[in-house]
Design a protein around this nucleic acid. Structure first.
Length: 550
RNA sequence: GCGCCCGUAGCUCAGUGGAUAGAGCGCCCGCCUCCGGAGCGGGAGGCCGAAGGUUCGAAUCCUUCCGGGCGCGCCA
């Protein structure tokens, strides 16, 4: 009989625990902190461990260890032969030792979940419409490694949120308006005429290439040259990003915010004015961001009548709100962090709720040369481009390298080292485990695997490596949920590596093909299928390929 | 001066209230009759920047300080 997949075995364990705790508590208030149910640091401390008794102690005014005893009795009564035994340890931990029957049931449910393993529920609020805006590099130059990090992160986050069932819209905000664009046009034009670029203009081979592609860049309207140059640059960005496995649903033009009657910018001003958030001072239009925690009010429209960049950004966020998203996620570079507070303030001034806007800051990628940090300057054409990074170490290694770390730590990238370490990159270890499983399953043959899944049944006695593998597999759903909630795709990379290591230990200790006695091979083939799905999914969430062979 | 991020093994980094702080790389010692050795086992290596505080319990939360990075415009 196939067990229900509605809840995981781990969820049921958690439920049994909280029911027991509620019973002990009676009418008294629940502790402010939710109890943990996690794998203890050492195997002799059980399969799972909870701190529930220690949290209940102040509420029940009793000794933690005594409460743990009672919790243990309750669990024994509820779980029956699924439980081997419980132990009270240390200051009041309750350590749970599960029977093989529990593992067998748990892994059968994971197997039954198929490709949805780990997907879980989108959350209490249900599926959300989420707009993720990322990269948004100025279209006046190629993407460098900083953009690469932003791209890998925004993409992986989008994949995570989609996997959890949210409706994700990926967006690139194109800064095709303002002085940078004019400067770009002037640089192209100078090149077209064979003149040196303006003092603060753009340099680098790509400027010459774009100028050549335009053909008559030297003549005509500088603004038209700039616009054409940006179109060509955007094509390049799109190509590079596609190679990096990053796609966008919308490329949103900043210029569009200024056209129409009323323009989006004017409309945003109206919305703010209706709420009494703006005022005129010395000929300029100001927004009262100080009412929402900013340290000074900000100018929206200069006394000259021109709009500030901030005004565009506000109009853009209002436009996204009106498109009906439940959440707006912006992935910004570290150089924009000073901008976060005022953007939040403006968002609230527009009438948005603080939790509807998520502003995430990516820390820098520093280029390191022989231990010294070097700077990246786009105008000097002096930087490592995403294209170069891909050419040097490949998409998989590059994405892993950039996603392996938390978004709020700076990364030192020594290209020399990265190139040398390519073969040592743990991503290959994970991919190798995937390929190895694929090889085992291929050897077994499709029919044998299908039959194994059909008559999947646990053996009388589980090997330790089998139990470890199942435990690791059961953790996948929690890992995915936490990675999404904390906006931390790097957790998936860490999990994938650990899972691959756990599988490799299983592979070492437990022969799959030809395993005896009867039924063991089928059971282990089932474990292989689960493992392949989990590794494949983990890599997929990171945008890294999961090869059948290497 | 003010604000944000960071400080954990030789290096690069995980670890946002639990037990003896982990991984990868590097280093040392072992291991191929066996489903893929891009591997496996073992070892050395830590005052978690410093000092106070909160807590039964702190790398984790609070305060101050030190160090590094990045910002702080009617620029974009």
């Amino acid at each position: 009989m196939v067990p229900s997949t509605a809840t995981s075995a781990l969820d049921e364990l958690r439920d049994a625990l909280s029911e027991t705790a509620a019973e002990l508590r009676g009418e008294r208030p629940a502790p402010s902190q939710a109890p943990t149910l996690e794998r203890p640091p050492r195997a002799e401390l059980g399969d799972y461990s909870t701190n529930a008794a220690m949290l209940l102690a102040p509420v029940l005014k009793a000794a933690p260890r005594q409460i743990a005893e009672q919790l243990g009795e309750g669990l024994v009564a509820r779980l029956g032969d699924q439980l081997d035994h419980v132990e009270v340890a240390g200051p009041g931990f309750l350590n749970v030792f599960l029977a093989d029957a529990w593992y067998a049931d748990a892994v059968a449910r994971v197997l039954a979940a198929g490709d949805a393993v780990g997907a879980g529920e989108p959350g209490e609020a249900g599926p959300l419409r989420i707009n993720v805006e990322f990269v948004s590099a100025n279209p006046t130059g190629p993407l460098h490694v900083g953009h690469a990090r932003n791209a890998a992160y925004g993409d992986a986050l989008s994949r995570l949120l989609s996997f959890l069932g949210h409706e994700v819209h990926r967006e690139f905000y194109v800064n095709d308006n303002g002085s940078q664009v004019r400067k770009f046009g002037e640089s192209l034009q100078a090149h077209g005429r064979g003149e040196p670029p303006p003092a603060d203009g753009y340099q680098g081979d790509y400027v010459a290439e774009i100028a050549a592609a335009i053909g008559d860049a030297g003549d005509g309207d500088p603004e038209a040259v700039a616009r054409r140059g940006i179109e060509l640059m955007l094509e390049r960005l799109r190509t590079t990003l596609a190679t990096f496995r990053v796609d966008f649903d919308t490329w949103f033009s900043e210029r569009d915010l200024h056209v129409g009657e009323p323009s989006a910018v004017q409309h945003a001003f109206d919305v703010l004015a209706e709420q009494g958030r703006t005022y005129r001072h010395e000929g300029a239009l100001w927004l009262r961001t100080t009412e929402f925690g900013d340290d000074k009010d900000r100018v929206l429209e200069r006394s000259s009548g021109e709009h500030t960049y901030f005004a565009s950004d506000i109009a853009y966020h209002q436009e996204k709100r009106e498109r009906g998203f439940d959440r707006l996620v912006d992935v910004w570079g570290a150089d924009h962090h000073g901008y976060v507070r005022r953007m939040h303030a403006a968002f609230e001034a527009l009438g948005g709720r603080p939790d509807e806007l998520d502003l995430l800051i990516m820390q820098f990628v520093n280029l390191v040369d022989r231990g010294e940090r070097t700077s990246m300057s786009k105008r000097r054409g002096d930087f490592v481009s995403l294209d170069e990074l891909i050419a040097e170490i490949g998409v998989d290694a590059a994405r892993w390298y950039l996603l392996n770390r938390s978004h709020d730590t700076t990364i030192d990238l020594d290209l020399e080292l990265a190139r040398r370490e390519t073969n040592e990159n743990p991503v290959y270890y994970v991919q190798y485990a995937h390929a190895r499983i694929a090889s085992i399953l291929a050897r077994a043959g499709e029919d044998a695997v299908a039959e194994a899944l059909a008559r999947f049944a646990p053996p009388a006695r589980l090997e330790p490596a089998e139990r470890d593998l199942i435990k690791k597999a059961l953790a996948f759903g929690t890992e995915v949920a936490e990675a999404a909630e904390r906006r931390a795709p790097h957790r998936i990379a860490a999990y994938a590596l650990e899972f691959a290591q756990t599988f490799t230990a299983f592979y070492r200790d437990c022969p799959v093909l030809g395993a005896q006695p009867e039924g063991v091979e089928a059971f282990r083939l089932g474990l292989c299928v689960v493992s392949r799905r989990i590794i494949g999914r983990s890599l997929g969430l990171l945008g890294v390929s999961a090869p059948e062979s290497m």
